[in-house]
């Protein structure tokens, strides 16, 4: 039976395609734009699309974290850094090396071929099945028990990053 647009499945499919489109459009803007700030705006759009996909896949927590961290923190930081660093307004990005384009296409072609092959060969579960309920409580428990080692290691890495940036900032400041 042809899935109708006005059933729940039809609308869900439409939503999925829309989110996919948003993600891909953001990615294309981010890579093809010659203007650095517009590229970051494209990146933000791409992140929003990915967050939408997470929400679509029934993981609202990951989706909201994606927005909070990637859109709200990382994109803002990148734009801020670009704004401070780029003094001439109309500086454009130029590709220096002619090999970059073909090599990029080759690399992305291999990657998508491998991913597509993996997706087609894997035996997917027939029915919709969820490993666990994906709730916040389960996530927190897993982070503090099963994955506590990696959790701690990540916090050590972040701590080192903070101390390192403090050291760098300290060196650049005149003693006033």
């Amino acid at each position: 039976m042809e899935p109708s647009l006005f059933t729940v499945e039809g609308l869900a499919g439409l939503l999925f395609l829309g989110l996919l489109g948003v993600t891909l459009a953001g990615a294309v803007i981010a890579t093809c734009s010659t203007n650095l700030i517009r590229a970051v705006a494209g990146l933000a759009l791409c992140f929003l699309g990915v967050a939408g996909l997470y929400y679509y896949l029934n993981s609202p927590f990951v989706a909201l974290m994606q927005i909070l961290i990637y859109v709200g923190a990382i994109c803002v930081t990148i734009i801020f850094a670009v704004m401070l660093a780029e003094s001439s307004e109309l500086k454009r990005l130029r590709q220096r090396n002619g090999l970059i384009g073909p090599l990029g296409i080759l690399a992305s072609g291999i990657l998508s071929w491998a991913l597509a092959g993996m997706a087609l060969k894997t035996e997917w579960y027939k029915s919709a099945c969820q490993a666990n309920d994906g709730s916040l409580a389960r996530l927190g428990e897993a982070l503090l028990t099963t994955y506590s080692m990696s959790f701690e290691l990540i916090s050590v890495v972040l701590f080192v990053a903070i101390v390192g940036s403090l050291v760098l900032a300290r060196a650049g400041r005149s003693k006033a």
Binding site: I37, F61, L64, I67, L68, V71, G72, I79, L136
Partner: peptide
């Protein structure tokens, strides 16, 4: 009534800065 409503408000509140930043730079 979203189960993590508080997180949702703070997630979307953080996008606000991006709008101001893009408008100011633009």
């Amino acid at each position: 009534n979203i189960d993590i409503g508080l997180l949702m408000i703070f997630a979307f509140a953080s996008v606000n800065v991006l709008g101001l930043l893009l408008g100011a730079w633009g």
